[in-house]
């Protein structure tokens, strides 16, 4: 069981988190302008990397925040986490 470093709460057991798949899959700004193949690529296809993989997790049974984490899909080594922009915790009165 991984010990995941939530950027908001610190190290916690993997069972507190939910997996959100590959990170940086941006939703197309103009879906109607895409071909069927391009849209299918966004909806259905993911990198499925062997090795280092940037993915997103959410601390479901914790702070509820989403963040990104790089994990090696072969060794399970994991490291750098990143936060999403916008509504930062500090900004919440």
């Amino acid at each position: 069981m991984l010990l995941i470093h939530c950027p908001y709460c610190g190290p916690r057991d993997e069972t507190e988190f939910s997996y959100g798949g590959e990170a940086d899959i941006a939703r197309p700004l103009e879906p109607e302008a895409l071909s069927d193949a391009e849209w299918a690529d966004y909806v259905f296809l993911r990198t499925n990397a062997k090795g280092r993989f940037k993915e997103q997790w959410v601390h479901t049974h914790g702070c509820g925040r989403w963040f990104t984490m790089v994990r090696d899909t072969v060794t399970h080594e994991h490291g750098e986490t990143g936060v999403f922009g916008g509504f930062e915790p500090d900004a919440v009165g």
């Binding site: 959100g20 941006a26 939703r27 997103q56 959410v58 509820g64 925040r65 989403w66 999403f84 922009g85 916008g86 509504f87």
Partner: peptide
């Protein structure tokens, strides 16, 4: 929450 945090934080 997923959409609000990861895609539309604005």
């Amino acid at each position: 929450e997923m959409w609000l945090q990861t895609e539309w934080p604005e």
